[in-house]
Design a protein around this nucleic acid. Structure first.
Lengths: 252, 252
DNA sequence: CGACCCTTTGAGGGCCGTCAAAGGGGGTGG
DNA sequence: CCACCCCCTTTGACGGCCCTCAAAGGGTCG
């Protein structure tokens, strides 16, 4: 029995939100914040490995990740799974379903996950009464597209070494930005090699061999569920990674 | 000298828009329509092969494709180009740049293209005064993400035959929906095999061999710049393609 | 201790990339 | 009107990256 990953529930009051305090999130006005609080229909905890919502399912909710890791995926008829991107604190999911009538992809928890839940049918009234929040949601949607764009380039144009390097850099940066890096520069790394393979369009075996290769080269280390980048510059060079400055991001 | 592809300019008045008449677009109120017209800063024609905007460029405009074909792409250091998705009439581009400060990808015209141009710095006032339009833009953004999601699955999880089949079906469906299919069921097909290769993450040579294979199997025919699907069912089965019902889409 | 999941490694093969070169069609200039 | 050029398409040969199959090793939990 694992020691329950005591991920704290989101507080009852959004004014007490431990996430929004982070400098990586944009400031929001007091009125907008109270509006968010009334808009929020509740919270939800999903244990590691469980589904947040399934592909093709009818969902009527939007979710913001409060803590933990998750991922979006699609499955093909032969059972192969493509991971579209990983979700960390602050990420918004469920918007596509608003426009497609049902979930166009599944979402699964990698670790125990805490979510803030919003009703989809309140979205229109949000746009009407709180244009700033509507604008923020559009921002988040465009950011999501950017993430997938990047992943498409990785899967379409990079070889196995470069793909793995990209994934490691990208996840590390995103986690670090959220203050999830330990003093030693390591971050929790809950992915199995199967997850990495599914995200990068590689086989499990080749993913393993590539990871070992980068590790032998001294570029990174994964141990005890933690990732450390030992040579970020070399990784970035290998992956043809261009660091883009990170701007504060809105949080719903 | 080609006979100029006489793609008509968008009319001066949005009320005369030849595109919005299509049933695939949602109805918009008269007031919203006049607002769109004043929001629009002009139109722009881009000849085939020319850039609409370059990667990394600072742009301060949003574009709606009025007619013609274009594509979004990113380039790596080794010069390889990944096409993210193709753009047809009604598609909106430039939103990502609003949030990243510069273009995160390039856009290039495949055919002569006519664009409606909107100022980016008017976006916030749009959200404030016309919430319905803000909502529509979010819809379009989420739809774009859906497109890229699908392409990521194709490139990450399908073999060459399936990728080509997916591309042909997808482009045909999107064009047909816009009323671009001829009575014989063919659509204009301005892509070179290099474009297909760059979109699918395949080499030019292998793209050619795969196209010829599907053609020899009688699944499709490309001739005189036109594509016809000769066996849509077989193509869909090969590609593991699930037809999703198409809903009316907003148009900015 | 055994079951299960994940990781790791080896062997062999196939899909697809690279290299090379010929063929076709349209535009341009002689 | 023909020659030439350029771009795109097409085909063959060969090699390599990555997939599949197979099996062993380690860690955790019942």
């Amino acid at each position: 029995m694992k020691p329950a990953v005591a991920a704290a529930r989101p507080p009852k009051r959004c004014t007490d939100c431990a996430l929004r305090v982070q400098t990586c999130f944009t400031q929001v006005s007091a009125t907008d914040l109270t509006w968010i609080e009334t808009f929020r229909s509740g919270t939800r905890a999903v244990p590691a490995g469980q589904s947040v919502f399934a592909e093709q399912s009818k969902i009527s909710q939007l979710f913001t990740v409060y803590s933990g890791w998750a991922f979006r995926y699609k499955t093909l008829a032969d059972g192969s799974r493509q991971i579209l991107n990983f979700l960390l604190a602050g990420d918004l999911v469920g918007l596509q379903a608003e426009f497609a009538n049902k979930a166009t992809h599944g979402v699964e928890a990698l670790t125990d996950v805490q979510l803030c839940v919003f009703p989809q049918d309140g979205l229109w009234s949000l746009f009407q009464s709180q244009p700033q929040l509507g604008y923020d949601i559009t921002w988040l949607s465009a950011s999501n597209e950017y993430l997938v764009d990047e992943n498409l380039v990785t899967v379409g144009s990079r070889n196995a070494e470069q793909r793995v390097a990209m994934l490691l850099i990208d996840l590390w940066r995103r986690a670090e930005r959220l203050g999830l890096a330990a003093p030693d520069g390591s971050i929790a790394f809950p992915l199995t090699q199967q997850h990495i393979a599914d995200a990068l369009g590689l086989s499990l075996v080749h993913t393993n061999k590539t990871l070992r290769k980068l590790e032998r080269l001294g570029l990174h280390a994964i141990a005890a569920g933690r990732l450390r980048l030992l040579a970020p510059g070399a990784l970035a060079h290998m992956a043809d990674y261009y660091a883009t400055p990170m701007r504060p991001v809105p949080l719903l």
